[in-house]
Design a protein around this nucleic acid. Structure first.
Lengths: 97, 97
DNA sequence: GGCGTATTTGGCCAAATGGCCATATACTGC
DNA sequence: GCAGTATATGGCCATTTGGCCAAATACGCC
């Protein structure tokens, strides 16, 4: 396993999550799979924009998709990313101290 | 406390960490405080660049600085960010599967 | 004060980001 | 095949990012 430059790879993963819309998506998916349409409505951006966010999350191994007829369902592949929420909250509390 | 739009705030925290140089810095600081000079040598970028990274981390409540004479020591304020490393690794493993 | 060292700030610039619109593709049902 | 719905892709553009260099600031020492 490549041990050198692991930070670059890890940075890419973090970057994939470091976006408000994508956090909304991940948070929603942490409670069960849903369709692109559901996520689009939730995020409030253009469907094309949400689709790009999903493609990016998929490319980084964070979500997975499954087509069912006319719909495409996405689900969270690495639930550990939810740890980020609690830590980010803690950082925010630290700052406001 | 503002509960709405918490995702935007969390995204800002993640973004603060989503950079190779800053991950190197955080990883180093997780093993104890050190000076800007130490970090500059470790990261391998210009001192001014490292200083800006540190300012950004400080602005987000992730690190804290302490001046001792001619030197400025930085230390990690929110060690929970280290959780990110293990999760990022897990995501990377998932992708390579 | 003046010099040397450590750190920060400002200016600049190429590259990446994230949004929208328009268009293309995938599927269902007729 | 054609029409309608769901999702993805390409083009475009304003903003942000992250690096370097040069200059400014902070401190210790003589």
């Amino acid at each position: 396993m490549s041990k050198c430059n692991g930070f670059a790879k890890q940075a890419r993963v973090l970057k994939a999550l470091a976006n408000e819309s994508r956090l909304i998506i991940v948070d929603r998916l942490s409670r069960g799979e849903c369709t692109v349409g559901d996520l689009t409505e939730l995020v409030g951006s253009d469907a094309s924009t949400v689709s790009k966010h999903l493609a990016l999350l998929r490319a980084h191994g964070i979500v997975e998709d499954r087509r069912a007829g006319n719909l495409v369902y996405y689900r969270l592949l690495t639930p550990c990313v939810c740890k980020f929420f609690s830590c980010a909250t803690q950082v925010l509390e630290e700052r406001s101290r």
